[in-house]
Structure formats: structure tokens, C-alpha cells
Write a protein that binds this DNA or RNA. Structure first.
Lengths: 105, 105
DNA sequence: TGCATAATTGCACAACTATGCAATTATATC
DNA sequence: GATATAATTGCATAGTTGTGCAATTATGCA
């Protein structure tokens, strides 16, 4: 596995692997429409500045995307991209080995 | 989403989301048979004590399992369990929302 | 019993991270 | 322009994490 790709995958998982960030992801999960940051604050009991920073981390990893609407920013989950990345990792872990695919259950 | 479950999932992702630990996982991925810790040291250029600690973290999250063989410990990847957890998360992220399943592509 | 090897643990430390508060920026409305 | 609100940024801080080295434990073998 390529070092750069490994680092990228690790960063992706690390971004998801923090309680408040994962809570934000779940919160965005529950709502079909975009949510602004203030609204998202309610789901985790931390300062709005903290939420802002967490959303920034999630955006950097392409886990969420945002649009500017007036003075608000509305965030939405990149559902397909995130799900695809997780599934690809699952496939690698389940299927790749020296003998090429069979993991001997 | 239940707080305890969220924390557990976050811990799982955090365990995977570190470069050297993910490298160990990939290394175990490549090999069908169990590997001892010394062997695994080769895949990441850190002290054996560090590898030992990383493997402990991975074992705590049930990402790897080990057997004692003489004075060695041989580690193997819990392929199915890890893959299943990742896929379940992918499913939640892709499908769950207020309107019950459709995520409006 | 003595020695060698595998692995873990104690300790110290540097780097990173999450957090809250205050200040700042950006934008809408009056 | 003045004011209010949404969001971000600077700063300080406490807590966590990854790391290496040395010591220790555990096991196998002569």
C-alpha cells in the first residue's frame, strides 16, 4: 500500500474518529437538507467555535461540503463519497492477502 | 445515535486512523497467516515497543486478535469484523436521514 | 541454572489536539 | 452608517498521543 494513500486514509479515519466530529456527521446524516453551523451546535455541547473548527476538519477531508447562504454557511454530508471510501477500505481489509482474495473463513 | 455507540465507533475509527497502526493493518492484510510482532516491526520504522503498543490498541478495539505461541505472539486481522463495522457505518451514512432512506442523489 | 530472544512496561518528552473565551470578520437589516 | 447576527480566528491551556530508550517479564533452550 502506497505511503501517501495510507496517510490519506488515516487522515480520513482520524477525522471521523473523534466523538464530537462523528456526532456532527450523524447529525448531518439524520437530515436531508443542509444545516447551518448554529443548528449543528445543538447536537454537541461545545462552543460554536469548536463546532466551526470540527466542521473545517471534516470539510478538509471532503466528508462534508458547505454553501454560503447569506451570512450563514450550510453544511451537508458527502454521503456517497464517505460511504464509498469506507466500503473500499472494507473490501481491501476483507479481500486482499497474499493468496489473492480468499480469506479463509 | 446513542452516545455510547458513537463513542465506540469513534474509538474504532481512531484506532485505524493513525499512520503506523493503519500500516500494520495493511501489513496483516497482505498475509493470510498470523504474523508475530517482530515481523510486523519491519513494515513501520519505529521501535518494537511502539509496535507493541499499537498492536495493543488494535487488539483493544478487536481489530486484530493474537495467539501466544511459545514466547511469540502472533497477530491476525479480524477481517470480517472490521469490514462489517466499516460497511455498517457506510450504510448509516448513506441511507439514514429524516425521510427514511432516500438520500436524494 | 544460565543465557538468549520476544514482547511489554515505566519513564520522559515532544508534538498534537480539543476546548473556551475574546476579538475579529462578514453579512444582513434598519 | 449603525447595529445585530453568523461564523471564524487568535490565544492560552489542559489533556492526549506517539515515540525511543532502558528495564523488566516471559519463555525457550542448552
Amino acid at each position: 500500500m502506497d505511503v501517501k494513500q495510507t496517510q490519506k486514509t488515516a487522515d480520513f479515519l482520524k477525522a471521523l474518529g473523534e466523538f464530537n466530529r462523528l456526532s456532527l456527521v450523524y447529525e448531518l446524516c439524520r437530515c436531508e437538507s443542509s444545516q447551518n453551523a448554529m443548528c449543528l451546535c445543538d447536537c454537541c455541547s461545545v462552543d460554536s467555535s469548536v463546532v466551526s473548527r470540527h466542521l473545517k476538519v471534516l470539510a478538509e477531508r471532503d466528508i462534508v461540503a458547505f454553501d454560503k447562504v447569506g451570512r450563514e454557511r450550510t453544511y451537508r454530508l458527502n454521503r456517497n463519497e464517505v460511504a464509498t471510501q469506507l466500503r473500499e477500505l472494507a473490501d481491501v481489509i476483507e479481500n486482499s492477502n497474499c493468496n489473492g482474495g480468499n480469506h479463509g473463513v
